[in-house]
């Protein structure tokens, strides 16, 4: 029997728990599943974790996050036990200093944590990569992403109006977890691009702002399709250290037919999203002092700063641009292999 150390609260029934946890500010505004000791133990066992295992320490405030606390929040979020290794790995990734967890969960810019899961675990636990990939109706996506938000609220103390000072925020802050559609994609998935094997499962986390949907039902050439990203790329600003593009299956079909590589997509987007320093300044972009206002500056500092993901429903020519917090310069995405 695993020894749990969290404070125990007692209630007459589940509805009392739900109301009490709302009142204490321990939820995201939605009802939670009461975190009983039996459920928490079941989650820990599913990931072969002891309650006292340190998953990570929040780098700025120094709060130590144990497996037990992550499991309590994962139960509350509505996860199934077999999702817990993904949640625990994502929390581990969030605590890496380069992710900059305190800043991204405190800032007025209002970032969410976007999780991209890859490898065999995707089909094993049913993470959606297809229709309505950012929408509701898929338990693994919905509850894994929600568990991360509850950990941020309860384990790091970043709740709305307290540490979290987001001006607008966005709905991805409730939950945002996806997988890539490896059947549709002609390219290796993100975690393989980052050095892991296709047989390994991994989670990559991004401090992600709201996406911009890009529609193009007319073009068939890859370059023409990418041209329709141009205004959206300008809207997110200059010199990004990292940003994400999600290409939908209809668009991907044209890239596959033309034999394009992922690097060609990155290079072409980099070139298309350039304009002069003077034009950026006209749009209110803050840039360092320069004596050459005619120099060309792109949305991305380098082509390789653009992450290209493949996901979405089979019908509809709608792709997306997802910018990251502080133009991807004050945060780095983190990829971690999932341990089972």
């Amino acid at each position: 029997m695993t020894n749990l150390t969290s404070r125990i609260l007692e209630f007459d029934d589940a509805s009392q728990v739900i109301e009490d946890y709302f009142g204490r500010g321990w939820t995201d505004g939605l009802p939670i599943v009461p975190p009983t000791q039996d459920l928490v133990r079941e989650f820990l066992d599913a990931a072969h974790r002891s309650p006292s295992d340190v998953i990570g320490a929040e780098p700025t405030k120094g709060r130590v996050i144990t497996a037990e606390k992550v499991a309590v929040n994962a139960v509350m979020a509505g996860c199934r036990p077999e999702y817990f290794p993904v949640v625990a790995t994502a929390v581990e990734a969030m605590c890496e200093p380069e992710f900059n967890l305190h800043a991204i969960t405190a800032s007025t810019m209002g970032a969410a944590v976007l999780m991209v899961v890859g490898g065999p675990v995707v089909s094993e636990i049913g993470i959606n990569s297809g229709v309505s990939v950012f929408g509701p109706g898929h338990r693994a996506n919905a509850t894994i992403g929600r568990a991360i938000r509850l950990v941020i609220i309860n384990a790091t103390g970043s709740s709305s109006g307290e540490i979290d000072k987001a001006t607008l925020g966005h709905p991805g802050k409730y939950t945002w977890c996806m997988a890539e559609d490896t059947n549709v994609s002609p390219w290796e998935p993100l975690h393989v691009e980052r050095g892991l094997s296709e047989n390994e499962s991994a989670v990559t986390i991004f401090a992600a702002l709201s996406g911009i949907q890009v529609a193009n039902h007319e073009s068939e050439s890859p370059r023409d399709i990418l041209n329709s990203f141009r205004d959206g790329m300008f809207a997110i600003g200059a010199r990004h250290g990292e940003l994400n593009i999600v290409l939908c299956p209809e668009h991907i079909g044209h890239f596959r037919a033309a034999g394009w590589t992922k690097n060609q997509v990155k290079q072409t987007l980099f070139e298309l999203a350039q304009r002069t320093e003077a034009e950026w300044r006209t749009e209110g972009q803050v840039l360092p002092e320069s004596d050459d206002s005619s120099q060309m500056i792109s949305t991305a500092s380098k082509p390789e700063n653009i992450n290209v993901l493949v996901a979405g429903g089979a019908a509809g020519a709608f792709s997306s641009i997802i910018p990251l917090w502080t133009a991807g310069n004050g945060t780095r995405s983190v990829t971690k292999r999932i341990q089972f």
């Binding site: 749990l4 404070r7 007692e10 728990v17 009983t36 120094g62 037990e68 509350m76």
Partner: peptide, 21 residues
Amino acid sequence: MTTATRLAVLDPTVEPIPAHA
């Protein structure tokens, strides 16, 4: 005291470390 009819649940929060403040 825990009784069979009561629902026992766990506190999800992590306290700040006072020594750092």
